[in-house]
């Protein structure tokens, strides 16, 4: 791939390439791709960082340990506030989801790094997993009574069927909204960022007054970078808190 294509093509950053092929299942080639490499790096980074943060176990935390504790406490409080005492079992899951999405998004902010969460299969799988877990845990804990979730209390019998249909549709749209929100935000952000950064290069290449005004495009790219860092954190946070809210339906279906 020529360098020029890399500069001008905002889609190039999402391209997967196989680092080595493993095996094929039912005609589908399973390969270790750049995406898989970055997934591995994400896991390594999270584990390594948090283990380092916890290694001293000081009574008065240092900088690294403070970050680790804040990271832990934020999700711990979130799970506690939304799910209550019974939600303790889901804390490692919510923590893993948040950390995975957060570090995937943050890694995506580095040039030449692959953004794992910019692929819909990753975000949609995580979202489907969460909603699937809600159904499984809900039925496991409450049996068929869990389906009362779709039959709200105190609704007149006449409009109950309509409400139930709406509730079911809203429930089924959860994995779509949860997965697409993250995917869309990261994808769009990266494309826009790349487009503005690409403008800088093309405008300078054009020369003259256009080259001077490329400063505007550069400013925009800088501002968008800051915004993308915010979005990277915010989307991870939103993903985690929505996971908690959905899991709450599994634990306490009567609302």
């Amino acid at each position: 791939m020529a360098t020029e294509t890399v500069v001008n093509d905002p889609i190039h950053q999402f391209r997967l390439h196989s680092l080595f092929d493993l095996f094929s299942v039912g005609g589908h080639q399973i390969s270790f791709t750049n995406s898989a490499l970055f997934m591995g790096l994400i896991v390594l980074f999270i584990t390594g960082f948090l283990l380092m943060a916890a290694s001293k176990a000081a009574m008065v935390p240092g900088r690294l340990q403070s970050i680790g504790e804040m990271w832990y406490s934020m999700i711990h409080n979130m799970v506690n506030n939304v799910l209550g005492e019974e939600g303790k079992a889901f804390f490692p899951l919510v923590f893993s989801l948040f950390s995975f999405v957060l570090i995937a998004n943050m890694f995506g902010m580095f040039p030449y790094f692959f953004t794992v969460t910019s692929h819909v299969i990753v975000t949609a799988s995580l979202a489907l997993f969460v909603v699937g877990l809600v159904v499984v845990v809900g039925i496991y804990k409450h049996g068929l009574g869990w389906f009362k979730l779709f039959v709200p209390h105190g609704v007149p019998i006449v409009i109950l069927p309509i409400i139930s249909v709406i509730e079911i549709i809203s429930f089924l749209s959860r994995p779509i909204s949860l997965g697409l929100r993250l995917f869309g935000n990261i994808l769009a952000g990266h494309i826009v960022l790349k487009v503005f950064a690409g403008f800088v290069v093309s405008m300078i290449a054009a020369g003259g007054i256009i080259a001077v005004s490329s400063v505007l495009s550069l400013g925009m790219a800088v501002a968008l970078t800051a915004l993308e860092f915010l979005v990277a954190f915010l989307q991870a946070f939103v993903f985690a808190i929505l996971t908690c809210v959905y899991l709450n339906d599994a634990l306490h279906p009567s609302h």
């Binding site: 997967l16 390969s31 692929h119 299969i121």
Partner: peptide, 16 residues
């Protein structure tokens, strides 16, 4: 469009 390329889904899902 790479993020929607279904041929890459099995690999990504596997590693995910």
């Amino acid at each position: 469009f790479p993020p929607l390329d279904a041929t890459s889904f099995p690999s990504q899902l596997f590693w995910l």
